[in-house]
Each structure stands twice: as structure tokens, then as C-alpha cells.
Design a protein around this nucleic acid. Structure first.
Lengths: 333, 333
DNA sequence: CGAATGTGTTGGAACGTTCCAACACTCTAG
DNA sequence: CTAGAGTGTTGGAACGTTCCAACACATTCG
């Protein structure tokens, strides 16, 4: 288990540790014979550079740390893809941690990354409060994805949740709906703008009297709970805006179990345009976020901030896109 | 951006660096007054210990590295949960990397973890070849999840894929099917035992003449491709075993598009019992793997191997469980 | 021919932490 | 009063790497 060090390689190859270091870095100031000897020795011993030691002396790790709120949501996979690809092209590695939507664990997960001295931090739809991101940003370039963060030191990449939800409301109103209810995302990233977007759009259509937002979360269970509480109310809505696609699946489950037809009895919408939403079985009307681009942008922001420290924070807002499928239709009579 | 070190804290608190170190480790051999002064100074400076330095001197990182093949598959989320919980209880952190099902990137992702000197490595359903795991195991306790690895130095945690698939075949034969086709998982973990399990079960039922396995992968696209090639054949199967739930979704998509009824015209099964499979809309007959337990077991294997080096590799095989839903039924006439 | 330039190689310092042996002091027992 | 134990604190060595200044040697130039 004892790992060989650069000194072991140097001895094996009969050269100095400095020369081994140069070879490992791919320097061209090394004679072919030395290079060959070093590579052979390294191969023979199974040498692997020690990133901890390198991080120490270089005062940087060449690693981008990514906190992801919830691995159950395939939405994040594409964001992470975008981050990984961009980081890789710039010569950085990326590593992930998650707090599983538990604030305390999320804080711990961020702490792990910071202690490892990642060169940049990307928090995808964090559940933890903004102080955590602000605190992190004092030691490392930090970008939050999916949650607008009004802080002078934290960049953010979001889609325009308010207008995204607005498009959904417009679509439903256009179909003739007025009793349009909303299931909230709770503490999760992006729930506030979606909630206010919902309320504003309703008002804009003169439907402030119909505004109904029930608690939920960005999970299947959150959708189920929200839908159950909606059904427990006096008047059933004719359309339901779930907090995201995952929640919409929960909503559909409850409705299926109740024997209610979608969209006959009730229209349902999600958010995120995940792959499952597209499946004909669900045919979920939803809002597409440019996931991969969001990841790419986030990584680019972090990378440029690593190179030349910007004074002001950047806040990138990408446009969402309504995707109409079979889960929405005109209200019954 | 310059991070304060333990020396800065020591100076601020008016004590030695050693004492700061003791306080940070929660030692009880520190006077209350000193502890207070140190904590106050650390707080004031925003001190965070440098994990790289600690790793150097302690010759261990207290980190478990996890390679996950595909973040799009929610199956892995629960496995990772299990790993994370177990690691946390033992005082370890866990970090993730992924290679996105691309062997070369997966190798790189493992390399990243090894260079960081993780104390244990868990590879979840790796796509990369076994040499990679064997190589890793020479420097760090390594466990592969989801892929049986016959190597004396690599532990493994799997479900019994062969018997899992066997249960599906038995179920379908019991319903009266005989033209039962199989969509393969390709290079991914677990595809071989599932393939052979399929073939053996078919033989066991005297159906060797009906054996038909087409290429695919453990993704929606793999399922779509597999189903398309099955439909292009001369005789349509009456039942299709998709490589996993994700692929089954792809299969259903193609069938829906073709206007074929499930299970009226054709029965479909998945593998993994992911949350979406349970959704009434899909109602997928599938095989449940004890995901969380698999993660827990994997972490436990790694942790015990970290503490006292076992001589022989452990291979844990957990029992799968057939979950019958609405996507399977008797064949048409 | 001596100086300047270039090529390949080298040892030592530094990074931030932990751990150890050693310290100064106080208290207790003989 | 002294030896011994106990308590809290300390400086120095070590971990494995990179980077720098310095080196030896060969080549080119004036």
C-alpha cells in the first residue's frame, strides 16, 4: 500500500527528483534518454503524483469543486456535464459532493471542498442559505447555479424562472383556465422567483382571486404532498403548476390514484424538461432550461475569476423555453 | 483570497501553532482559556484547515472516493446515499467523480481520486475495464459495485443479476410467453451476467430456439435503439427484457410511437426498480436491487479494509427481488 | 583564446499541517 | 523538602512535491 514517491522514481532512474518532476510535467528541457529512463522507472514502480503535495507547493489544486443538491434529479446531470467538459478543456478536474438536500450536510460538503482547496466552487441549486455561498466566496471564486444570489462576491447562473413560470400561466390561461394552483418548491433553489412569477402572472391576467400556492418541495414526495393538500381543499383547481418535473411525477401519481384524468379533469405542468418528462407516457408540459449551457457558463465564470479577479459579480440569466405536451389541455367545460 | 494558516491563527491568539492544532482536533488537553482564544481567532480570520497539508503529514486523507458511471440514472443516487451515510458515521468524507460512461474519462476520474490519495475507492458500475480497478487496488482498498470482478485484490458488491433476470424470465414464461427477447447492456457493468442469465433461463424452459439478444446500453437511447432493431426483425417478440429501467423507458417510447400496446401487444420489463418505474404511468415490471444496502456494504468493505488489511477479497452478492407491475401480461393469443 | 550563450541537470527552500519529545509549572505523596 | 506525577504548552521534524538559482559542460562568437 505504501505509494512510491518522486524520490523512489528518481533513485530507480538514477536521476534527481527535480528531473523526475520535469518529466512528469512534460517539460521539453529534458534529454530523451533521461525522459525514457524516468518514464520507465515510474511505470515500473506504479508511480502516481501526490496531488496533496502538489497543491501545497503550487498553492492551487487545479480542481473545481461542485456541490450538487440532489443526485436523484437527472436535471443536474447535464449541468454537471457542462461543467466537467468546460473544466476539462481548461486543464482542471472537477469533483462532486452532495448534501442530499439537508442544509447541515450541504454545509459540510462545501466545507470538504474548501478544505481541499478547490480553485473554484460551483453550487448547483443549493438548499443551504446564502451565507454559506458568501462565506465560501471569500476564499475561492464561487458561482451559484439555479438560485439568484444577490451578493457582490458570488456569481450566479440562472434561468429566468419568473418569466418561465409566466409562460406556463399564459399558456394555461390561453387554454381557458383560471383556477390555476401552484405547488411550491420550499427551501430549494429557485422556488421564490417561481412563486412570485406565478402570483404576478395571475394578477396580470386579473386572476388574483384565484391565487393558490401550497407548500411542497422539488421532489416526487413534495409533489404528492402538494397535490394531496390541493385535493383536500374545497374547490379543485383545473390546472396545477408543480415545482419541477420530479414533483409533477408525484402529482400525476396522486391524480392517477384518484382516478382523475390528465388533462381532462386537470392539467399538470412541470419545470426542467427532464428526459422522463419528454417520455410519451408522461408527456409533461414543462419549461426547458439550457442545462448544459448553464453548466458551461458557470464553469467559465469560475475559470475567468480564477485567472483575473473581477471586481463585480456576474449574474447570467438564460432564457427558459416553454415545451407544450399532452399534460395540458382546455379545462373541462 | 490568501487563506489564513494555522500560524496566523496562532499569532492572533497569542499561542503556538501546536496548540491551535490541538484545539482544532478537539483535544481535551487544552485549557479553556486557550481554547476560547484560539476559536475566537480562527473565527475572526475565517480559518479553515488545509486538507492537503493534513493529508501529507497524516499519510491519509479520511476521504472515500466514489466513481459513478452515470449521473443520469437515479439508481446510483441511493447507492451513493448509502456510501455517504456509512462513511460519515465512520468519520470519513466522500467525494464523487464521473466519467460519463466514457472509458477514457472514467480512467481519468479514477486517476484524479488516486492522486488525491483517497483512503478508499468505490467504483459504481464502472464502464472501464477491470485492469483499472485492479491497478487502483494496488494503492488503495477498492470495491466495485454492480459488476462482479474476479480479482484477488478487488472486493465487489453486486446483486445476483443472473437470478434476477431468471425471475423475470420465469414470470414471463408463467404468463405464457415464449418469444422473449433481450436488450443488452453493452460494455456497462452487469450486462454479461444478465445476458447469460437470460440465456440460461430460456434454455431451462426449453426455449433455446427463441433466444434473441440485441445490442443496447444502460440508457434511454440504448433502449430505443435495441427496440428499433427488434421491431426491424422478422418476428416480433411478445416480451422484451430491457437492460435496465432507463432503457425500458426508451423501449416504451418506441412502442408508444409505433402504436403498440403494452402489455397487450408486447410485455416490457426493466431492472433496478427506480422511482420512475414505480410511477403508475410506466408501471414497469422490474427487479429491485437493495441500492442503499449495496452502498452501505461497499462502504463497510472499504472501511474494514482500510483498518485491517484483509488477505482475501470479499464478494458480497445481495438478492434481487422481482417487482411485478402493469407492463407485463399474457401474450396476445 | 576567452567570453558569452545555451542545454540539461541538480540541491535546497518552501508549502501548512500533525506528531513527538521535551518543557515549565503545579500538585501530591513520602 | 524532594521526588514523582499530572497538566498544559511548545519547537522542530516530517510529509512529497514544485520552483528557483546555480551548476557543469558544450557550443558559438568576437
Amino acid at each position: 500500500m505504501k505509494q512510491p514517491t518522486i524520490l523512489d522514481v528518481a533513485e530507480e532512474a538514477g536521476v534527481s527528483k527535480s528531473l523526475v518532476s520535469l518529466v512528469m510535467q512534460g517539460s521539453d528541457k529534458v534529454s530523451d534518454s533521461s525522459r525514457e529512463a524516468v518514464l520507465e522507472a515510474a511505470q515500473k514502480l506504479g508511480y502516481r503524483p501526490n496531488a496533496a503535495a502538489r497543491t501545497m507547493v503550487q498553492q492551487r489544486s487545479s480542481v473545481i469543486g461542485v456541490l450538487v443538491s440532489n443526485l436523484h434529479n437527472p436535471f443536474f446531470a447535464d449541468v454537471i456535464d457542462g461543467i466537467g467538459a468546460t473544466a476539462r478543456d481548461a486543464g482542471y478536474r472537477s469533483i462532486l459532493t452532495t448534501g442530499n438536500r439537508v442544509p447541515e450536510r450541504e454545509r459540510l460538503a462545501v466545507g470538504t471542498l474548501l478544505e481541499m482547496r478547490v480553485d473554484g466552487l460551483i453550487m448547483i441549486s443549493p438548499v443551504v442559505n446564502r451565507e454559506c455561498a458568501i462565506g465560501a466566496s471569500s476564499s475561492v471564486p464561487t458561482v451559484v447555479v439555479g438560485k439568484a444570489t444577490r451578493a457582490p462576491t458570488v456569481d450566479s447562473v440562472t434561468n429566468d424562472d419568473r418569466s418561465g413560470i409566466g409562460m406556463v400561466v399564459d399558456h394555461l390561461v390561453g387554454l381557458g383556465h383560471s383556477r390555476i394552483a401552484h405547488i411550491d418548491g420550499g427551501v430549494g433553489a429557485g422556488s421564490r422567483p417561481r412563486r412570485t412569477g406565478y402570483k404576478r402572472s395571475m394578477k396580470r391576467h386579473g386572476l388574483e382571486g384565484e391565487i393558490l400556492s401550497v407548500p411542497g418541495s422539488f421532489t416526487e414526495e413534495g409533489g404528492r404532498a402538494g397535490m394531496r393538500s390541493l385535493l383536500a381543499g374545497d374547490t379543485r383547481p383545473t390546472a396545477v403548476l408543480a415545482s419541477n418535473d420530479l414533483a409533477a411525477i408525484g402529482v400525476l401519481e396522486v391524480l392517477d390514484a384518484e382516478g382523475l384524468d390528465v388533462p381532462g379533469d386537470i392539467s399538470v405542468t412541470g419545470y426542467d424538461n427532464t428526459a422522463i418528462a419528454a417520455s410519451h407516457r408522461l408527456g409533461l408540459t414543462t419549461v426547458d432550461q439550457p442545462r448544459h449551457d448553464m453548466g458551461r457558463m458557470a464553469a467559465e465564470l469560475v475559470l475567468t475569476k480564477i485567472d483575473h479577479d473581477r471586481a463585480k459579480a456576474s449574474h447570467v440569466v438564460l432564457p427558459p423555453k416553454l415545451v407544450v405536451r399532452e399534460s395540458t389541455g382546455p379545462p373541462s367545460r
